[in-house]
Amino acid sequence: MVGKDCVAIACDLRLGLQALTVSNNFPKIFQYGDNVFLGLTGLATDLSTVSDLFRYKVNMYRLREERNIAPKTFANLVSSSLYEKRFGPYFVSPVVAGLDPKTSKPFICGFDSIGCIDFAADFIVSGTATDQLYGMCESLWEPNLAPEDLFETISQALMSAVDRDALSGWGAHVYIIEKDKVTKRLLKGRQD
């Protein structure tokens, strides 16, 4: 979700096999550098594979270029890496959020499982509670939210959405990304 000079990214913590909850502490957001974040939903094994793959690729990028990767560059890396597996894809739908290292402009985008980028100016949703999240975000979000208001908006949107989805929930992680500050908060939420 985009705010004024800030972005937020949030995920729930459930890991399940259909109806059975296997873990209630399985974060789906990964950090790649100071202000580049990747959220992943989908098949859990591919979540790990993909997040590890990008950790490797981003570390190699940092060594080669001697600088951190920018969100836009990272988004294109995600896209091309997923499209490489066009005919045997990773079953994930990623979300990228971050601030441009030069201009500090908020950047968010989403992808399908084969890397088609969806650039958005407001918000990106993904996962089993997509419908609910669209409904919540579309009605709660407004332009130019300050960091604290953005935190409240993204949290209310996520919590209410996952409470109407049997396959999501069990608490949440919320990251608010500002120019020289990243705030991570744990939301408890309903434990059912």
């Binding site: 296997v22 873990s23 098949l43 859990a44 094994t45 594979t49």
Partner: peptide, 15 residues
């Protein structure tokens, strides 16, 4: 650590 045949890895207190 809990692992299934899909290579899903979850660190857990009990499994």
């Amino acid at each position: 650590y809990w692992l299934d045949y899909l290579a899903t890895l979850a660190p857990l207190p009990y499994a």
